[in-house]
Amino acid sequence: MRHLLDLEGVPAADLANMLDTAESMAEILNRPIKRVPTLRGKTLLLLFFEASTRTRHSFELACKVLGADSLALSAATSSTTKGESLLDTGRTAEALGVDGVVVRHSSSGAPHLLARHLRVGVINAGDGTHEHPTQGLLDLFTVRARKGRIAGLRVCIVGDVLHSRVARSAVHGFTRLGADVVLSGPPALMPPRGGSVPVEVEPDVDRALDGADVVMALRIQKERQEGGMFPSIAEYRARWGIDAARLARARPDAVLMHPGPVNEGVELAPELMTAPPSLIAAQVAAGVAVRMAVLYLLLGGVGG
């Protein structure tokens, strides 16, 4: 593996290998001394052109635990404000001798552009409305840790699926590993029918939740509402917001997920955040182990 740009098209065996590796990494995070020397001497550049808390910090922590150095470049303080292009920034980083680049960008395909032109490994940390592969991996990891399997589970994803890179990576990952995925949300925010991945679309969330093992609520972005994609926050909450009564329609042992940050009281009722079915904290914790696994697989060998 040289880059991690998307989960689409990644073979099931490779996904399983990443999850197994992440499981071994999770053990290190439970030790009194959370550090191994594996990537000593490697440097990772974190290029974040969009805001991020969880993703950036968990990449930084993953670097530290594996003994690598990380160099953070946020768009606001760098030469990008002087008009330096993405590619120039990447080439500069390469000239500085970094071993890999983690990039988040508002344009879909930005990491692919870097991967085509740089010699170092590129990890997509979220590109536009395309994919967020490490988030998809940590969702898979969290569900597998709790449920013991992915295959045969019914996964219900609720919200703005059309614009969600989290949903896109989750759909590819879960279906590849044999889960059934059903999407729900405002009809204008559902993906067009006839895509390459077999998913069910059920705009009525109460029906979509019926028999679900995994319920994943997505963050609603207010600018979509302003764009007329759905009528109002109040109506969204009434028709698609997940509360205890709605969650009861899923299986009794269903788990609840959200990529964060949560608009409490919009897509999720506040009391559900820390309720027993909630895996939201576990997702954040899994993020470090999963990113350690990806860094190891990308930078650990000759190719890195």
């Binding site: 053990e27 020397p37 594996l66 060998g301």
Partner: peptide, 18 residues
């Protein structure tokens, strides 16, 4: 994770649990 030849190897040895 403690090997001294990781960077000499093309394939990645599977990391198992301790």
């Amino acid at each position: 994770l403690y090997r001294d030849d990781l960077t000499l190897k093309a394939d990645h040895p599977q990391v198992q649990k301790t």
